[in-house]
Design a protein around this nucleic acid. Structure first.
Lengths: 201, 201
DNA sequence: CAAAAAAACTTTAGGCTTGAAATAATTTTC
DNA sequence: GAAAATTATTTCAAGCCTAAAGTTTTTTTG
């Protein structure tokens, strides 16, 4: 093994193992339906638990955090795919571009999206091919590529962004505004904690 | 486009754009170091913001949640790779196996890890090849594959699990126990909110 | 100014991931 | 008991993603 790579963690989640037509009347009494949505692994928090040390609380917190974001992220992916035939990376890239009227340099896209430059190359290539973005060599510096949304790309993105915001609101429905604020605040603290730890390496 | 796929979201994070040898004395005065760790995009929360609807608070919360888990997850990946030449999926799979003394059926692995069965096939194949796990056809049901850790695999996993717990503790260092509890609790509520929303589809 | 260094990007090899379409074995149903 | 349905797993095509090693262009330096 020479080099290892980034992957997605986990995401097949609840829907997994359900037959394609799960939820139809015909399947109600197949008990794998019950099994599949049982708390046991909607959870995923059984993952690493019981580690040697006794900072188990941190681990539990981390696994729950991961479970939440995985659950949400994969649902968003699924809906983007089913309703708009789009992937999350494509959506994310267009989201970045939407705010940059004049377009954005490839390298900045890479940094903002926190993915490798080589990745953006291919992603942009596909978006150019499907007519969502344009790629222009900067006249000032011929190393630089300027990426911008086409009007078609912008229109498509608007549709998706609206739906996306609704989906999030739907998934966060039961959370009270107060709990939302608390979460936002503590996650801010957590982020600072992590960034601080990363900075002293 | 026929089918779209799950990917990682984002992860290149803070270290990205740093030269490979960043952190050495020679690089201290290259200002891209400063640029790279600037709050602007350690953040990543600039992503989708400013969506049409005004449930912006939910969106902000979701992006912060995603940022946190991405930040942590990619650091874990990086350390697993650098210190143990291992990927997160490999680690996760071994973590599942560690608790199952008698081994685990491939399908259950797939469900617990929340990834597709086809994915496990290849992952297990590589782990068998590197001597970390064994794969046996069940005598009772010849469709079933039983996967188990080898003693080598177990030993390797123990080392990694210890380090992993330490890493999490390190990253969560600044968070007080109280805030940790609050986060854990509210994330539990969030999870229920999401699961509830997913259940009524 | 020429050489060296840096910056922006692309290429490459290879692991991860999915959804859909097989394959094979077991169970159910008529 | 044979046909049909179900279950467990594999195979396939294709996109995502990284680290490392190029390219090309620009900037810095001696």
């Amino acid at each position: 093994m020479k080099a290892l790579f980034k992957t997605a963690g986990q995401a097949y989640k609840a829907h997994h193992a359900l037959p394609p037509d799960a939820g139809t009347i015909a399947d109600v009494n197949h008990d794998n339906v019950v099994k599949t949505i049982s708390p046991d692994w909607v959870d995923g928090e059984t993952k690493v638990m019981e580690s040697p040390a006794d900072h188990g609380q941190d681990l539990r917190l981390w696994l729950r955090l991961l479970t939440c974001s995985t659950l949400i992220e994969s649902e968003i992916r699924r809906r983007l795919r089913e309703q708009f035939d789009c992937t999350l990376p494509r959506f994310d890239l267009m989201a970045q571009l939407e705010r940059a009227k004049a377009g954005m340099v490839l390298g900045e896209l890479s940094k903002r999206m926190m993915v490798s430059p080589g990745n953006i190359t291919a992603l942009v290539e596909r978006l150019v091919e499907s007519g969502h973005v344009t790629r222009t060599v900067s006249p000032a510096d011929r190393r630089v590529q300027i990426i911008a949304l086409t009007s078609f790309g912008r229109a498509e993105f608007e549709k998706m962004a609206t739906a996306h915001a609704d989906w999030i609101a739907e998934l966060f429905d039961v959370i009270t505004a107060r709990d939302g604020e608390i979460l936002f605040d503590r996650l801010g603290k957590l982020k600072r904690s992590v960034v601080t730890a990363l900075a002293r390496d």
